[in-house]
């Protein structure tokens, strides 16, 4: 009796794994491109030059148009630029590093992704709540690791 319940439940879980991947809409992104650090830096510079609206603590603040491709560059020991996004709008966030490994960790949601040099990771994101978010580096990246904080503003 208990044995058959366990088997049935195991089968349900077994089938749920791929099903949830397809229908669950909670999966890590799968869109990735190879990119050299120099090329990624160029893309980010162009992105900042085009949509810059100000500066905060020496870091450019960028307000991209709704639905566009947005960029976040990680390097020892900062995130650039500060992104100003609109609530309820979908963006394509391009993430990469130009030196060592970094970790993208969004506070306070605790949403975490690896940022790896030579790989451009594209996450499709839709902010659902207005507010100020912080991007903490959570992969050890050298002695200034603890200083590496960035910011995303959702309006």
């Amino acid at each position: 009796m208990w044995f058959s319940i366990a088997i049935v439940w195991a089968l349900v879980m077994f089938i749920m794994m791929p099903l949830w991947h397809v229908y669950g809409k909670q999966n890590p992104s799968t869109e990735t491109y190879k990119v050299t650090p120099a090329d990624f830096q160029k893309d980010v510079d162009a992105f900042i030059a085009k949509y810059k609206v100000g500066e905060e603590k020496g870091v450019p603040v960028v307000a991209p148009p709704p639905g566009s491709d947005i960029y976040l560059l990680a390097k020892q020991w900062s995130w650039s630029p500060v992104l100003k996004l609109k609530k309820g709008v979908t963006y394509r966030l391009h993430l990469s590093s130009i030196d060592v490994l970094h970790g993208f960790s969004l506070y306070p949601l605790s949403i975490n992704f690896m940022v790896i040099p030579d790989y451009e990771y594209v996450l499709t994101i839709t902010p659902t709540q207005a507010g100020e978010y912080y991007v903490v580096c959570n992969e050890y990246c050298g002695l200034g690791h603890q200083q590496m904080v960035g910011k995303i503003i959702v309006e």
Binding site: W20, G24, N27, P28, S105, S110, N112, F113, M114, N138
Partner: peptide, 11 residues
Amino acid sequence: TEQLNIRFHNT
């Protein structure tokens, strides 16, 4: 777990 790992990774 593939999905929960997003919350846990490197924390």
